[in-house]
Design a binder for these strands. Sequence first.
DNA 1: CTAAGATGTCGAT
DNA 2: TCGACCTCTTAGG
Length: 287
Amino acid sequence: MPEGHTLHRLAAAYRQVFGGESVRVSSPQGPFAQAALRLDGRPLTGTEAHGKHLFLGFGGTADPASTDWVHIHLGLYGKVRFGEGPAPEPVGQIRLRISTADDTAHADLRGPTTCALISDPEKQEVHRRLGPDPLRDDSVPEQAWQRVSRSGTTVAALLMDQKVLSGVGNIYRAEVLFRQGIDPRLPGRALTREQWDAVWKDLTLLMADGVRDGWIDTVRPEHTPQAMGRPAREDAHGGEVYVYRRAGLPCLVCATPVSAGTHAGRNLFWCPACQPATPIGSLQYRP
DNA sequence: CTAAGATGTCGAT
DNA sequence: TCGACCTCTTAGG
Protein backbone atom coordinates (compact mmCIF):
# COMPACT_ATOMS: atom_id res chain seq x y z
CA MET A 1 0.00 0.00 0.00
CA PRO A 2 2.69 2.45 -0.94
CA GLU A 3 1.25 5.92 -0.56
CA GLY A 4 3.16 8.38 1.60
CA HIS A 5 1.98 7.02 4.93
CA THR A 6 3.58 3.66 4.11
CA LEU A 7 7.02 5.19 3.63
CA HIS A 8 6.85 7.26 6.81
CA ARG A 9 5.82 4.14 8.64
CA LEU A 10 8.74 2.25 7.15
CA ALA A 11 11.17 5.01 8.09
CA ALA A 12 9.99 4.71 11.69
CA ALA A 13 10.17 0.92 11.60
CA TYR A 14 13.73 0.82 10.23
CA ARG A 15 14.74 3.36 12.86
CA GLN A 16 13.12 1.42 15.68
CA VAL A 17 14.53 -1.95 14.70
CA PHE A 18 17.99 -0.99 13.44
CA GLY A 19 18.58 2.64 14.41
CA GLY A 20 22.09 3.36 15.69
CA GLU A 21 23.19 -0.25 15.41
CA SER A 22 25.81 -1.71 13.18
CA VAL A 23 23.85 -3.90 10.82
CA ARG A 24 24.44 -6.60 8.29
CA VAL A 25 23.49 -5.55 4.79
CA SER A 26 23.19 -7.86 1.84
CA SER A 27 21.50 -8.06 -1.50
CA PRO A 28 21.08 -11.81 -1.83
CA GLN A 29 20.19 -12.07 -5.49
CA GLY A 30 19.89 -8.59 -6.84
CA PRO A 31 21.84 -5.95 -8.71
CA PHE A 32 22.39 -4.08 -5.46
CA ALA A 33 24.99 -6.57 -4.23
CA GLN A 34 27.97 -4.27 -4.75
CA ALA A 35 26.40 -1.43 -2.81
CA ALA A 36 25.33 -3.75 -0.01
CA LEU A 37 28.92 -4.82 0.42
CA ARG A 38 29.93 -1.21 0.96
CA LEU A 39 27.29 -0.75 3.69
CA ASP A 40 27.67 -4.09 5.48
CA GLY A 41 28.72 -3.70 9.10
CA ARG A 42 28.12 0.02 9.27
CA PRO A 43 25.63 1.71 11.62
CA LEU A 44 22.20 2.76 10.40
CA THR A 45 22.35 6.36 11.56
CA GLY A 46 19.26 7.93 10.04
CA THR A 47 15.96 7.09 8.39
CA GLU A 48 13.71 9.53 6.64
CA ALA A 49 10.72 9.70 4.30
CA HIS A 50 9.71 12.44 1.89
CA GLY A 51 6.56 11.71 -0.07
CA LYS A 52 6.88 8.18 -1.38
CA HIS A 53 10.67 8.19 -1.09
CA LEU A 54 12.51 6.46 1.75
CA PHE A 55 16.10 7.17 2.79
CA LEU A 56 18.25 4.94 4.98
CA GLY A 57 21.44 6.63 6.13
CA PHE A 58 24.63 4.75 6.92
CA GLY A 59 27.43 6.40 8.86
CA GLY A 60 30.64 4.93 10.18
CA THR A 61 32.98 6.12 7.47
CA ALA A 62 36.26 7.87 8.17
CA ASP A 63 34.61 11.16 7.34
CA PRO A 64 31.72 11.59 9.77
CA ALA A 65 30.18 14.31 7.59
CA SER A 66 29.60 11.92 4.73
CA THR A 67 26.61 9.66 5.12
CA ASP A 68 25.83 7.10 2.48
CA TRP A 69 22.13 6.88 1.77
CA VAL A 70 20.04 4.10 0.35
CA HIS A 71 17.31 5.74 -1.69
CA ILE A 72 14.24 3.52 -1.94
CA HIS A 73 11.05 3.97 -3.93
CA LEU A 74 8.56 1.13 -3.75
CA GLY A 75 6.75 2.01 -6.95
CA LEU A 76 3.53 0.11 -7.42
CA TYR A 77 4.70 -3.29 -6.21
CA GLY A 78 7.52 -2.82 -3.78
CA LYS A 79 7.22 -4.32 -0.33
CA VAL A 80 9.23 -4.43 2.87
CA ARG A 81 8.75 -7.29 5.26
CA PHE A 82 10.15 -7.21 8.77
CA GLY A 83 10.73 -10.41 10.69
CA GLU A 84 12.11 -11.58 14.01
CA GLY A 85 15.08 -13.86 14.29
CA PRO A 86 17.57 -14.76 11.59
CA ALA A 87 16.52 -14.08 8.01
CA PRO A 88 15.41 -17.23 6.20
CA GLU A 89 16.96 -18.44 2.95
CA PRO A 90 15.87 -16.03 0.24
CA VAL A 91 12.84 -17.10 -1.75
CA GLY A 92 12.53 -15.17 -4.98
CA GLN A 93 14.20 -11.84 -5.52
CA ILE A 94 15.27 -9.82 -2.50
CA ARG A 95 16.82 -6.49 -3.36
CA LEU A 96 17.99 -5.48 0.08
CA ARG A 97 18.22 -7.42 3.29
CA ILE A 98 19.18 -5.77 6.58
CA SER A 99 19.74 -7.84 9.72
CA THR A 100 20.82 -7.02 13.25
CA ALA A 101 24.31 -8.24 14.13
CA ASP A 102 22.84 -10.62 16.69
CA ASP A 103 20.24 -12.04 14.29
CA THR A 104 17.26 -10.93 16.35
CA ALA A 105 15.57 -9.12 13.50
CA HIS A 106 15.70 -8.63 9.75
CA ALA A 107 13.94 -6.70 7.00
CA ASP A 108 13.63 -7.71 3.34
CA LEU A 109 12.91 -5.31 0.50
CA ARG A 110 11.38 -6.73 -2.68
CA GLY A 111 10.30 -5.30 -5.99
CA PRO A 112 11.16 -1.62 -5.54
CA THR A 113 11.28 0.77 -8.47
CA THR A 114 14.36 2.36 -6.94
CA CYS A 115 17.01 1.05 -4.58
CA ALA A 116 20.18 3.03 -5.07
CA LEU A 117 23.21 4.09 -3.09
CA ILE A 118 23.45 7.87 -3.15
CA SER A 119 25.49 10.63 -1.54
CA ASP A 120 24.11 13.35 0.69
CA PRO A 121 24.13 15.96 -2.12
CA GLU A 122 22.27 13.51 -4.34
CA LYS A 123 19.71 13.07 -1.58
CA GLN A 124 19.28 16.83 -1.36
CA GLU A 125 18.55 16.85 -5.06
CA VAL A 126 15.73 14.36 -4.55
CA HIS A 127 14.22 16.56 -1.83
CA ARG A 128 14.51 19.57 -4.09
CA ARG A 129 12.33 18.14 -6.78
CA LEU A 130 9.61 16.97 -4.39
CA GLY A 131 6.76 19.19 -3.26
CA PRO A 132 5.73 19.64 0.36
CA ASP A 133 4.68 16.46 2.13
CA PRO A 134 1.65 16.68 4.45
CA LEU A 135 3.45 14.31 6.81
CA ARG A 136 6.64 16.36 7.21
CA ASP A 137 6.99 19.09 9.81
CA ASP A 138 9.18 21.15 7.49
CA SER A 139 6.61 21.33 4.71
CA VAL A 140 5.39 24.67 3.46
CA PRO A 141 1.89 24.15 2.04
CA GLU A 142 2.04 27.60 0.48
CA GLN A 143 4.45 26.17 -2.09
CA ALA A 144 1.78 23.75 -3.26
CA TRP A 145 -0.89 26.43 -3.31
CA GLN A 146 1.28 28.64 -5.51
CA ARG A 147 1.29 25.93 -8.15
CA VAL A 148 -2.27 24.72 -7.72
CA SER A 149 -3.82 28.16 -7.85
CA ARG A 150 -2.04 29.05 -11.10
CA SER A 151 -2.66 25.81 -12.92
CA GLY A 152 -5.18 24.86 -15.55
CA THR A 153 -4.47 21.19 -14.83
CA THR A 154 -7.19 19.28 -13.02
CA VAL A 155 -7.00 19.13 -9.26
CA ALA A 156 -7.02 15.34 -9.64
CA ALA A 157 -3.76 15.44 -11.58
CA LEU A 158 -2.22 18.13 -9.39
CA LEU A 159 -2.76 16.10 -6.22
CA MET A 160 -0.87 13.20 -7.78
CA ASP A 161 1.97 15.37 -9.08
CA GLN A 162 4.82 14.80 -6.64
CA LYS A 163 6.46 18.08 -7.62
CA VAL A 164 3.35 19.94 -6.44
CA LEU A 165 2.93 18.03 -3.21
CA SER A 166 4.32 14.67 -2.26
CA GLY A 167 2.97 11.52 -0.70
CA VAL A 168 -0.58 11.61 -2.02
CA GLY A 169 -1.55 8.60 -4.13
CA ASN A 170 -4.69 7.44 -5.81
CA ILE A 171 -6.57 6.52 -2.64
CA TYR A 172 -5.87 9.70 -0.67
CA ARG A 173 -6.58 11.75 -3.78
CA ALA A 174 -10.02 10.26 -4.29
CA GLU A 175 -10.90 10.37 -0.62
CA VAL A 176 -9.76 13.88 0.24
CA LEU A 177 -11.60 15.32 -2.76
CA PHE A 178 -14.73 13.49 -1.69
CA ARG A 179 -14.43 14.66 1.90
CA GLN A 180 -14.00 18.25 0.77
CA GLY A 181 -16.77 18.04 -1.83
CA ILE A 182 -14.54 19.00 -4.75
CA ASP A 183 -15.03 17.78 -8.32
CA PRO A 184 -11.72 16.14 -9.29
CA ARG A 185 -11.95 17.44 -12.85
CA LEU A 186 -11.87 21.11 -11.84
CA PRO A 187 -8.74 23.02 -12.80
CA GLY A 188 -6.49 23.94 -9.89
CA ARG A 189 -7.16 27.63 -10.41
CA ALA A 190 -10.88 27.08 -9.80
CA LEU A 191 -10.17 26.18 -6.17
CA THR A 192 -10.53 28.83 -3.51
CA ARG A 193 -7.82 29.37 -0.97
CA GLU A 194 -10.21 28.08 1.67
CA GLN A 195 -10.79 24.88 -0.29
CA TRP A 196 -7.08 24.28 -0.70
CA ASP A 197 -6.35 24.94 2.95
CA ALA A 198 -9.07 22.46 3.87
CA VAL A 199 -7.64 19.86 1.47
CA TRP A 200 -4.16 20.26 2.91
CA LYS A 201 -5.33 20.10 6.51
CA ASP A 202 -7.46 17.06 5.80
CA LEU A 203 -4.50 15.32 4.16
CA THR A 204 -2.32 15.95 7.20
CA LEU A 205 -4.96 14.35 9.42
CA LEU A 206 -5.82 11.43 7.14
CA MET A 207 -2.21 10.58 6.37
CA ALA A 208 -1.17 10.80 10.02
CA ASP A 209 -3.92 8.29 10.76
CA GLY A 210 -2.49 6.14 7.98
CA VAL A 211 0.96 6.22 9.57
CA ARG A 212 -0.49 5.32 12.96
CA ASP A 213 -2.77 2.53 11.71
CA GLY A 214 -0.89 1.13 8.74
CA TRP A 215 -3.89 1.41 6.45
CA ILE A 216 -5.99 4.09 4.81
CA ASP A 217 -9.24 4.81 6.62
CA THR A 218 -11.14 7.92 5.60
CA VAL A 219 -14.80 7.59 6.64
CA ARG A 220 -16.07 9.86 9.36
CA PRO A 221 -17.53 8.29 12.51
CA GLU A 222 -21.09 8.70 11.28
CA HIS A 223 -20.33 6.69 8.13
CA THR A 224 -18.60 3.68 9.60
CA PRO A 225 -20.16 0.26 9.01
CA GLN A 226 -21.17 0.15 12.65
CA ALA A 227 -22.82 3.58 12.59
CA MET A 228 -24.68 2.85 9.34
CA GLY A 229 -25.42 -0.79 10.02
CA ARG A 230 -23.78 -1.87 6.76
CA PRO A 231 -21.27 -4.65 6.14
CA ALA A 232 -17.59 -3.76 6.46
CA ARG A 233 -15.45 -3.55 3.37
CA GLU A 234 -13.94 -6.83 2.37
CA ASP A 235 -10.62 -6.28 0.72
CA ALA A 236 -6.98 -6.09 1.56
CA HIS A 237 -6.85 -2.37 2.13
CA GLY A 238 -8.29 -2.81 5.58
CA GLY A 239 -9.69 0.66 5.94
CA GLU A 240 -13.07 2.12 5.09
CA VAL A 241 -13.29 4.58 2.20
CA TYR A 242 -15.99 6.69 0.56
CA VAL A 243 -15.33 6.34 -3.17
CA TYR A 244 -12.03 4.62 -3.97
CA ARG A 245 -12.80 1.48 -5.98
CA ARG A 246 -16.49 1.83 -5.21
CA ALA A 247 -17.56 2.49 -8.81
CA GLY A 248 -21.30 2.04 -9.24
CA LEU A 249 -21.91 1.42 -5.55
CA PRO A 250 -24.14 3.85 -3.66
CA CYS A 251 -22.40 6.84 -2.14
CA LEU A 252 -22.23 6.39 1.63
CA VAL A 253 -23.61 9.89 2.11
CA CYS A 254 -26.24 10.38 -0.61
CA ALA A 255 -26.65 6.94 -2.24
CA THR A 256 -25.90 8.27 -5.74
CA PRO A 257 -23.86 5.67 -7.66
CA VAL A 258 -20.14 6.45 -7.41
CA SER A 259 -18.63 7.55 -10.74
CA ALA A 260 -15.39 6.16 -12.13
CA GLY A 261 -13.15 6.94 -15.03
CA THR A 262 -9.56 6.92 -16.21
CA HIS A 263 -7.71 10.17 -15.79
CA ALA A 264 -4.09 10.54 -16.92
CA GLY A 265 -3.75 6.78 -16.91
CA ARG A 266 -5.03 6.28 -13.38
CA ASN A 267 -8.39 5.23 -12.01
CA LEU A 268 -10.45 8.07 -10.64
CA PHE A 269 -13.52 7.80 -8.42
CA TRP A 270 -15.93 10.46 -7.22
CA CYS A 271 -19.52 11.07 -6.24
CA PRO A 272 -21.18 13.26 -8.88
CA ALA A 273 -23.68 14.58 -6.34
CA CYS A 274 -21.40 15.25 -3.36
CA GLN A 275 -18.60 16.68 -5.52
CA PRO A 276 -20.31 19.20 -7.81
CA ALA A 277 -18.35 21.56 -10.00
CA THR A 278 -17.72 24.78 -8.12
CA PRO A 279 -19.94 27.64 -9.35
CA ILE A 280 -18.03 29.59 -11.93
CA GLY A 281 -16.62 32.81 -10.52
CA SER A 282 -17.58 36.14 -11.99
CA LEU A 283 -14.12 36.67 -13.50
CA GLN A 284 -14.42 33.52 -15.55
CA TYR A 285 -18.04 33.96 -16.56
CA ARG A 286 -18.65 34.45 -20.28
CA PRO A 287 -22.26 35.16 -21.21
C1' DC B 1 -4.85 -23.49 -11.25
C1' DT B 2 -4.37 -18.96 -14.39
C1' DA B 3 -5.26 -14.14 -15.45
C1' DA B 4 -5.92 -9.56 -14.50
C1' DG B 5 -5.23 -5.64 -11.99
C1' DA B 6 -3.23 -2.50 -8.32
C1' DT B 7 -1.68 2.13 -3.97
C1' DG B 8 3.69 4.57 -8.94
C1' DT B 9 6.91 6.51 -12.08
C1' DC B 10 9.70 6.91 -16.15
C1' DG B 11 10.82 7.01 -20.88
C1' DA B 12 9.54 6.30 -25.61
C1' DT B 13 6.26 7.65 -29.02
C1' DT C 1 -0.87 7.99 -24.20
C1' DC C 2 1.29 3.58 -23.73
C1' DG C 3 4.44 -0.07 -22.28
C1' DA C 4 7.82 -1.52 -18.90
C1' DC C 5 8.99 -2.43 -14.45
C1' DC C 6 8.17 -7.17 -11.64
C1' DT C 7 5.12 -8.45 -6.66
C1' DC C 8 1.15 -9.61 -4.60
C1' DT C 9 -3.85 -10.05 -4.21
C1' DT C 10 -8.11 -11.14 -5.97
C1' DA C 11 -11.38 -12.87 -9.32
C1' DG C 12 -12.57 -16.45 -12.16
C1' DG C 13 -12.56 -21.18 -14.15
